[in-house]
Amino acid sequence: MDITDTKDTPTAIKPTPVQLGKPRGGPAQSTLRKDYWWVTPTITVGVLTAFVIYATWAGFQNGNYYYAPYISPFYSPCIASNCVYQQLPIIGTWWKLSPALLILVFPLGYRLTCYYYRKAYYRAFWWAPPACAVEDAHSKYSGETRWPLLLQNSHRWFFYMGLVLNFFLTIDAVRAFDFPSGWGMGLGSLVLSVNAILLWLYSFSCHACRHLCGGSVNKFSTAPLRYRVWKILTPLNQRHMLFAWVSLIFVALSDLYVRLVASGAIRDPRFF
């Protein structure tokens, strides 16, 4: 096999044949690394598995997701008519399952197609590769060129949906200060506010966001506003992994907090 096919390439120099499959150096071992390369993928598997189990359980509960004025982020916006808290009942009474199932598909898709999570789960779950310079676990590899991984290219559409959800979760955070007895602040108000902030940071640090806001521009001097936005988003983008993990864990903790308060397991401390 060679790679001499140069049709349609506007280069002046013609590539010469490169013979593939020639012997390589070094021992035939999956890796010679001596450090603890397996620690990070192991932690990733543990945390992501725990999150998926908890989110699935919480999503199917269909109860204890609302305690005025708090609503669990897993159930917001509550778009089914069977919601305890009527927020945006656009789905009729025919929907009998948990309203969370109508919502969770969007953040799930957003995080599944996220450039950071791709790195995390390709390494930790798929072992393609498990770590740098550690052998890939698969005999063949076509990357994201074929179905179903071609769907990774839909990331920006989930990003748009994520912005819509963030908008609703921000409204929830504001309403979390509006108690039946009047304006006030409980621990739940802070929890939902921090949750909304972390989700915005996760969205604003997203690679698709950085590209759409300014990264696609080649001449920044002709688009000064987009350049300024790109400059602001770039340092956030460098912390995308941090925001991905923190927002993931905190959204689960936010649901847990509302669930515990709604079930009467704990009392929500009121500050004023």
Partner: peptide, 25 residues
């Protein structure tokens, strides 16, 4: 050890000409 991805020439020296062929494209 030599770089794993490229064909071995000898000891720690590998044939990296694959890269130069890509560069031409």
């Amino acid at each position: 050890t030599p770089m794993r991805t490229f064909p071995i020439i000898r000891d720690l020296v590998t044939d990296v000409s694959f890269n130069y062929e890509i560069a031409k494209k």
